[in-house]
Deep mutational scan, measured.
Amino acid sequence: MAEAPPRRLGLGPPPGDAPRAELVALTAVQSEQGEAGGGGSPRRLGLLGSPLPPGAPLPGPGSGSGSACGQRSSAAHKRYRRLQNWVYNVLERPRGWAFVYHVFIFLLVFSCLVLSVLSTIQEHQELANECLLILEFVMIVVFGLEYIVRVWSAGCCCRYRGWQGRFRFARKPFCVIDFIVFVASVAVIAAGTQGNIFATSALRSMRFLQILRMVRMDRRGGTWKLLGSVVYAHSKELITAWYIGFLVLIFASFLVYLAEKDANSDFSSYADSLWWGTITLTTIGYGDKTPHTWLGRVLAAGFALLGISFFALPAGILGSGFALKVQEQHRQKHFEKRRMPAANLIQAAWRLYSTDMSRAYLTATWYYYDSILPSFRELALLFEHVQRARNGGLRPLEVRRAPVPDGAPSRYPPVATCHRPGSTSFCPGESSRMGIKDRIRMGSSQRRTGPSKQHLAPPTMPTSPSSEQVGEATSPTKVQKSWSFNDRTRFRASLRLKPRTSAEDAPSEEVA
């Protein structure tokens, strides 16, 4: 009796068929016929556990003709996506030579605008209408194809895939403007070719909807975003200037109206006075309405000098805001240009540092100066060695804690006790272990408590650290204090090793 083939788990290929790579489910599931010992083939499952149809090819690079078809379809799909992405970037994010197409579109729109203006002049109306009709045909074809291509290429973005995504893309403001202008152009052409009475009025009214094509030149909205950011950044200043200017306008108009309503027919109503105030304070000055009385002229002159300053403030605020924003954008561009080279330089330096163990090129690091100058660790070890030599091999803490019996001779020589300023008595072995921070803190506390006492003391002649007598400086308080830590004499004296002298005989010792 033939044995059933062993159940295979995992992703390994079956024996005897090495080139074939078959994806098997996580659990080997066989058909009921196979479990019962029949000759049925096992049921194939996909990666998600769903059964595959009987005629479906197995996924994998070596699955025969199905694999070749899959490779061809995958390559075609990649080319399709690449083309779609390229078209989308050309239309929505132009760079380099892609601006040539947008310059061509701008020339078409500008020519249409010029011809629309010439069509309103009686001398050039006939020729402009003929040229404009031909140009409209060209623009309908160009913009119609462009609109379709834009909607198709938007599928390269995830949020615009599918018919719902394309509809979302078509609802964008600039796409809506394109659609309105396209419909208006078709209506103008249809009305112009019919030759009816309505054609002339339709051409004159709907052609100027094509002015909206100038708005579509900035599809990404960079200028509007820049203007919005400047207004938002200086909103408080703008609101303040406009508010005060509006108050000056209504008060000036009302007072001039009261002064001129009886003697001047131009100011017969408050609305006429508001019109005069707006034209005057905005420095336009049509001259259609002028005050005639001396009181009205004085009020107009005073409020004009006051109001023009507030009406001119928004222009200066926006101008300075634009300058600052442009400078910030230039700085951001320079930062973006330098970020990648800086990151590459840091990575290269780290690779060199991690692979080169000698690091002989590091001549400006802490390790280099640590090898030249005595390190703080060596100074600490030197302090501890000196203290243990004086205390008979014991550390200062051990000397303080060691009990001394009554009447027993002390094995240590008597030492002079010292007192730290602002604290109780402490171990004499710690007097010379006072660090730089303690010395600086002690000097600052003395300056806070009594700076007036220092200038009363007789001035001391500054001497070099080499000429100081070591026996005289029994305490860190003898170090000359200065008002600034930048004094080199104080810094050098604080680094010197001060020996400890006994109370009975204080021989001067120098520590090399």
Rank of each mutant, 00 (worst) to 15 (best):
A2V: 09
E3K: 10
E3G: 06
R7G: 04
R8C: 08
G10R: 09
L11M: 15
G12D: 06
G12C: 03
G12S: 08
P13R: 03
P14L: 13
P15L: 05
P15R: 09
G16V: 08
D17G: 14
D17N: 10
D17A: 14
A18S: 09
A18T: 04
P19A: 10
A21P: 14
A21S: 07
A21V: 06
E22A: 05
E22K: 06
V24E: 05
L26F: 06
T27M: 06
T27K: 09
A28G: 04
V29E: 13
V29L: 07
S31N: 09
E32K: 06
G34D: 07
E35Q: 10
E35D: 12
E35V: 04
G37A: 11
G37C: 09
G39D: 05
G39C: 06
S41Y: 08
S41T: 08
P42R: 04
R43C: 04
G46V: 13
L48P: 02
L48V: 04
G49S: 03
P51S: 13
P51R: 11
L52V: 12
P53R: 15
P54A: 05
G55S: 14
G55A: 13
G60V: 04
G60A: 10
G60E: 05
P61R: 06
P61L: 11
G62D: 13
G62S: 07
S63F: 11
S63A: 05
G64V: 08
S65A: 10
G66A: 08
C69G: 04
C69S: 11
G70R: 10
G70D: 08
Q71R: 14
Q71K: 08
Q71P: 15
Q71L: 06
R72P: 07
S74A: 10
A76T: 12
H77P: 07
H77Q: 07
R79L: 09
R79P: 10
R79S: 11
R81H: 08
R82H: 08
R82S: 06
R82L: 03
R82P: 11
L83P: 07
L83V: 10
N85I: 11
Y88S: 02
N89I: 15
L91Q: 02
E92D: 05
E92Q: 09
R93L: 15
R95H: 14
G96R: 15
G96S: 13
G96C: 01
G96A: 12
W97L: 14
A98T: 05
A98V: 05
Y101F: 07
V103F: 05
V103G: 09
F104S: 01
V109I: 15
F110V: 05
S111G: 04
S111C: 08
C112F: 03
L113V: 06
L115V: 11
S116A: 07
L118Q: 07
S119T: 04
T120P: 09
I121L: 09
Q122H: 06
Q122E: 08
H124L: 08
E126K: 03
L127H: 11
L127V: 04
L127P: 06
A128G: 10
N129T: 09
N129D: 11
E130D: 06
L133P: 07
L135V: 05
E136K: 03
F137L: 13
M139L: 15
M139T: 09
M139I: 08
V141A: 10
F143Y: 09
G144A: 12
L145S: 13
E146V: 00
E146G: 00
Y147D: 04
Y147N: 03
V149G: 03
R150W: 03
W152C: 00
S153A: 13
R161Q: 14
G162E: 04
W163R: 03
Q164K: 04
G165R: 01
R166C: 11
F167Y: 10
R168H: 15
F169V: 00
K172R: 05
F174I: 06
C175R: 08
C175Y: 08
V176A: 13
I177M: 04
I177T: 03
I180N: 00
V181L: 13
F182S: 11
V183E: 02
A184V: 07
A184S: 08
S185W: 02
S185L: 09
S185A: 08
S185P: 03
V186L: 07
V186A: 08
A187V: 09
A187G: 07
A187T: 05
V188G: 09
V188A: 06
V188F: 05
A190T: 09
A190G: 07
A191T: 02
A191V: 12
G192A: 00
G192C: 03
Q194E: 06
G195A: 06
I197V: 07
I197M: 05
A199P: 01
S201P: 07
A202T: 03
A202E: 03
L203Q: 04
L203V: 10
R204G: 09
S205C: 03
M206K: 02
M206L: 07
R207L: 00
L209P: 06
Q210E: 07
Q210L: 14
I211S: 04
R213C: 05
R213S: 11
R213G: 03
R213L: 03
M214R: 00
V215E: 01
M217T: 03
D218G: 04
D218H: 02
D218A: 03
R219L: 15
R220P: 02
G222R: 04
G222S: 10
T223A: 15
K225N: 13
K225M: 04
K225E: 10
K225R: 12
S229P: 00
S229A: 13
S229T: 02
V231D: 00
Y232D: 03
E237G: 00
I239N: 02
T240A: 03
T240P: 03
T240I: 03
A241T: 05
A241S: 12
W242C: 15
Y243H: 07
I244M: 04
I244T: 02
I244N: 02
I244S: 02
F246S: 02
L247R: 01
L249H: 00
L249V: 06
L249R: 01
F251S: 10
S253F: 01
A259T: 03
E260V: 00
K261R: 02
K261N: 06
A263T: 13
A263G: 04
N264T: 02
S265F: 02
S265C: 02
D266E: 03
D266G: 06
D266H: 03
S268P: 05
S269Y: 01
S269C: 07
Y270N: 00
Y270C: 01
S273A: 03
T278K: 01
I279L: 01
I279N: 00
I279T: 02
I279F: 00
T280S: 03
L281M: 07
T282P: 00
T283S: 00
I284T: 00
Y286S: 01
K289E: 01
H292L: 06
W294L: 11
W294R: 03
L295Q: 00
R297M: 03
V298I: 15
V298G: 02
L299P: 00
A301T: 05
A304T: 02
L306R: 01
L306V: 13
L306P: 01
L306M: 10
I308F: 12
I308L: 03
S309P: 13
F311Y: 04
A312D: 00
L313R: 01
P314A: 00
P314S: 01
A315P: 09
A315S: 07
G316S: 01
I317M: 01
L318P: 01
S320C: 01
A323P: 01
L324V: 03
K325T: 15
Q327P: 03
Q327H: 01
Q327K: 11
Q327R: 15
Q327E: 13
Q329L: 11
H330N: 03
H330R: 10
R331W: 00
Q332L: 02
K333R: 07
F335S: 01
E336A: 02
E336Q: 02
R338L: 01
R339K: 10
M340R: 10
P341R: 03
A342E: 01
N344H: 02
I346N: 01
I346M: 14
